[in-house]
Every structure is written in C-alpha cells, then in structure tokens.
Amino acid sequence: MTTLALATRDSSTMVRRQLKRLIRYPAMTVQLIITPVIILLLFVFVLGGALGAGIGGGRAGYVNYIVPGILLMTAATAATGTAVMVATDMTEGIIARFRTMRISRASVLTGHVAGSVIQQLLSMAALVLIALAIGFRPNANPIEWLAAIGLLTLFALAISWLSVALGLKSPTPEAAGNAPMPLLLLPFLGSGFVPTDSMPTVLRWFAEYQPFTPIMETIRGLLLGTPIGNSAVIAIAWCAGIALVSYLWAKSIFNKA
C-alpha cells in the first residue's frame, strides 16, 4: 500500500475509534452542551429584555442577535472535551502503543480531530433546535444555510486542531480541561452578546480585530441578513490560519513527545 493509502486507512480506523467512544458515552456530549444552553437561556430570559432594548428589537430580537455567538461558544465548549480526551489518551499509554506500531502517526490526531468536529457540529445543531424553540427566527435560504454550516465546520476544524494541540501540551487531563477556557470568553469580548461599538476604546479595538468577531458577523449575516462586508473573507482566513498553525503545532508536539 502507498503511504497515502495507509494514512487514509489508519485515519479512518482512528475516526471509528473516536465515534465509538462518543456513542458509548453520550453523557459527555450532553454535559458539554449544558453550559452554552444555560448561557443562552440566562441571556435571553434574564438579561434579554434590557439588552434587547439596548440594541433595538427587544427580547425577540436579542435571541436572534446572540445565536451566532452562542454557536461559537458551543463549539469551543465541545472542544474542551477534545482537549481532555487527548490529554487522557496521552496519560494512558495507548498512545505509546500506537507509536510503536507501523501506522501513520498523524492518524491518531486525525481521529481526534474528526471526532471533535462531528461532536461540535452535533452540539451546534442541538443548540439551534433549542434556540428555534425559544424564538430564534433565521431568514436564511438553503444556500445561506449551507454557507453557514460550511463556515461553522471550518471553524470547528480550526478549534479541533487547536484543542488537540492544547491537549497534547497539557501535563494532565485536568489542565487540559482549563486550557481552552479563553475561547469561551471570546464571544463576550467580541460582537457575540452586544455590538462592539458600545464598548470602551481599547476593548472595542480588541473586539473588532479578534478572530471570533468576523466569524460571528458572517454567521449573523448569512442566517439573519445583516450586512457581511469583508467579514466572510477575514473569517475564512482566520479559520484556515488557526487550523494550519494548530495542525503544525500539534504535529510537532506529538512527534517530539
């Protein structure tokens, strides 16, 4: 078999391994989606009246406003689980076993990434259903939906590689659970919950240039018809950049360890 065929075969074996683990332990997927759901409910029902009035559109308008930010938060939370799983793998000796076998080295990581992307997409789908139930009213056509799903998949891929790298870098599974935490804050420090122009200058500058903001603006534009401008290009560039850098980083840690 050629190297590429071997790599593909080993990677698909590793993806199957991850999927089995996800199916066997749905509790983890459920647990990971609880945090963003609670945030969604808190912000819509507790704070939504006041915040919605601030951005114009009341509570109903506010549900629409925060769904893109909560979607990214959902993906990031699911990625926390990936980092923990990778770190656990590293401590348990099974990785050492894989390393002493004649298999494609990257396949171990590819398996985690594919499993993570699937988990993030499932979590985001569940979140969209809950959001629809409490008044989320997107006006996207099928093409726009596909584009949104495409961008979110690209984002999930980037975050997956990042959390795999963080998981590899973490000395313990506990540390790995904390490493991706800043990602959960980025929707707040961007246009996820309130428009950036309501923020003080320094924070606004950060909010406008950090990677999550153009992604959220693009999703918002695709699902709700707000202007997108150059956000889409910047969003894709950020996702591709984060994915590439994290991939190289993860690979180098994995080969070194």
Partner: peptide
C-alpha cells in the same frame, strides 16, 4: 506491552 496498561478503557 508497557508498564502502564495501553488499552482504550472506553472501548
């Protein structure tokens, strides 16, 4: 076969 069990405990 290493000192620490190298099995996938979730499987």
């Amino acid at each position: 076969t290493g000192q620490y069990s190298a099995v996938d405990k979730l499987l």
